[in-house]
């Protein structure tokens, strides 16, 4: 049974959601304010944390910031529907997924399961331990990224997204496939989660030294990791 920390200031909502999630075989603890949520999160007792942004004392983003570097429990951020800014900031802070609130509980459960599968998968040792594409080397066992021998700090989700993209380096990967392979769930309408993760990875890796784009957007389809050697030969 998976243990979930549910942090939301709406007590009644927490009660209902606990009931729902218990029926779906989760063990749920609730926190009604940011400080309690942070305290409980730092115990490391949870498989996953569901964090609402609007909370008294410490808001969700502050909790996320204070958690970073101390515990690496995956986080799903609940953002207020219609507040695009919160959503973007939440992902920039390094949440693993987001869900607009009010949300369908079935969707929440689907996201929880996908995230848990991802975490478990990343814990299993890979057969192929290292993968190099151009000046970029990623270690699948250590889950680290080296760019010209400089280490790049990626979150677990970002690592998964980059890995999925590198598996098809030099070819266009559509967003459905990318979402399925890296977030282990289906792409839903108006779901820009994958775009947000990629924009963060892009920022962290930067362009090629000659100014060429490392990760290109192919309009309406998806993304491509550009391999420079291939482009030159072709």
């Amino acid at each position: 049974m998976y243990r979930i920390l549910l942090a939301d200031d709406d007590v009644e909502l927490c009660r209902l959601l606990t009931e729902y999630l218990t029926a779906e075989n989760f063990d749920v603890d609730s926190a009604y304010d940011g400080e309690t949520a942070l305290e409980q999160a730092l115990t490391g007792n949870y498989h996953i944390i569901v964090l609402d942004i609007m909370m008294p004392r410490l808001n969700g983003l502050e909790v996320l910031k204070k958690m970073q570097g101390k515990v690496d429990t995956p986080v799903i951020m609940l953002t207020a529907r219609g507040d695009d800014i919160d959503r973007i900031v939440g992902l920039e802070m390094g949440a693993d997924d987001y869900l607009p609130k009010p949300c369908n509980p079935r969707e929440l459960v689907a996201r929880l399961r996908a995230l848990l599968r991802r975490v478990e998968k990343s814990l299993k040792p890979e057969k192929e331990s290292k993968k190099a594409v151009g000046d970029l080397t990623i270690s699948l066992t250590e889950r680290t990224v080296l760019l010209e021998r400089q280490s790049v700090n990626l979150t677990s989700t970002e690592f998964n997204v980059l890995q999925a993209l590198l598996n098809h380096a030099g070819e266009v990967v559509d967003k459905q496939k990318l979402t399925q392979e890296s977030l282990l769930r289906k792409l839903t309408p108006h779901d820009r989660s994958i775009d947000m993760h990629l924009s963060r990875i892009r920022k962290k890796l930067g362009n090629y030294p000659d100014g060429g784009q490392r990760i290109k957007t192919i309009r309406g389809i998806g993304y491509i990791y550009v391999v420079q050697g291939l482009a030159a030969e072709g």
């Binding site: 709406d10 729902y20 509980p105």
Partner: peptide
């Protein structure tokens, strides 16, 4: 009004999920 509608709606959706279950 929109803001205040969000909380009851969120609860309504979860309650609906329970009803489904």
């Amino acid at each position: 009004v929109s803001h205040e509608l969000r909380s009851p709606l969120a609860r309504l959706q979860i309650a609906l999920g329970l009803a489904h279950q």
